[in-house]
Amino acid sequence: MSDGRRTALGVACGAAAGALWGLVFVAPEIVRPFGPLQLSAGRYLTYGLFALILLAPRWRQVTALLGRREWLALGWLSLLGNSLYYVLLASGVQLGGVAMPSLVIGFLPVAVTIIGSRDKGAVPLRKLAPSLVLSAAGVVCIGWEALGQVRGADFSRQALGLLCAFGALASWTTFAVSNSRWMARLPQISAHDWSLLIGVVTGLQALLLVPPALMMDKTAHAAGDWLFLLAVSSGIAVFSSIIGNGLWNRMSRLLPLTMVGQMILFETLFALLYGFLWDRRLPTQFEGLAIILVLASVTTCLAAHRTKPAAAAVLAQE
């Protein structure tokens, strides 16, 4: 596969993953009667079940490639990228609304790209500066409206929501970097199977969330409410976790880590779009400008990774 086709396919997978992942930002609003622990437990129990069913025909073949170190890595990645991340994110959404966590998570490309710039053969950080500046400017524009809307809200509630959002940022940044590097070490395992393995381990971790999720809920829910939670959890598990994660892992093998960071911007973009649809409104001037800046950031990042033909020929001869 040529570099151009490889990059185009990687960007397409990243955009599709972002579109599916953006759904997780509105899910806590859709099932607001239920807490973050209940939503996370429901989502990841169904995710683990579906992943196990899909992986079952190849279970022995795939697990034979894993040792103790790989299983520990799967447990760590499942915690950072799924269980812990979504509890923190859902808490941030329910405490501060969709916009504030979207703003904080929007810093993911900056964090991941800076870390990825240290990898061998990565594009120098100075070449990524325009993309990072555009990304930061877009996030500031997104936050302008969000911060203005919460001035009259309870400070402690907003502060806790902001803290949860930053915790989610730290958790997923660590996951994105570690997951990309682990996949590079295990080329014998397909991106899809690696995603399903993470799903199975996440499902096991979700079992630990069930007791506190039930004990901490003091609200009496009707049977229809539980069925609705199950439907939302299943939908998020299939589309965001199984399909979205599979697309993300495919993209991680096609693009360098510095570009992987920029692809996370699509999640922010779609999260805002879904938030506008949920609120039944159009974006404000600042939000519209933020969308343009986000797209410009991805475009300049792609430009920074283009190799001139002469340079490519020299590299090919080495």
Rank of each mutant, 00 (worst) to 15 (best):
L214Q: 05
V232K: 06
A206Q: 05
V177D: 02
L255P: 03
S234M: 13
F228M: 13
R185C: 03
L229S: 04
G224E: 13
L230P: 00
W194N: 08
V200L: 08
R181L: 09
D217P: 00
S252H: 03
L272E: 13
S178I: 05
P211H: 04
L207H: 01
T268K: 02
Q188A: 15
S234D: 07
H221E: 15
R250P: 00
A237M: 01
A176C: 14
L204H: 10
M259I: 07
S190M: 07
I242P: 00
V238E: 06
G203H: 05
M251T: 08
L214H: 01
N179V: 09
L257M: 03
L196D: 00
W248C: 05
A184D: 10
M263I: 13
F266G: 02
N179D: 12
E267L: 06
P187K: 01
L207V: 11
L186A: 13
W194R: 08
V200Q: 09
T202F: 00
T268G: 03
H192I: 12
N249W: 04
S233R: 08
L186T: 12
D217K: 00
S252G: 09
A213R: 01
V232G: 07
G224C: 05
L230D: 02
L265H: 09
D225H: 05
L214I: 04
G235I: 10
R253Q: 11
F239L: 14
S234E: 08
L186Q: 10
M216R: 14
V210E: 04
Q188D: 15
A223S: 09
A222K: 13
L273D: 02
Q188I: 09
E267P: 00
V201Y: 00
Q205L: 15
T202N: 11
G261T: 04
L209M: 11
N249D: 13
N179K: 07
L214D: 05
G244A: 14
L229W: 06
L269V: 06
T268F: 02
R181D: 07
A220S: 08
F239I: 12
S178C: 11
A176M: 15
G244F: 11
H192T: 13
L197W: 01
T202S: 15
K218P: 00
T202Y: 00
R253A: 06
L230A: 14
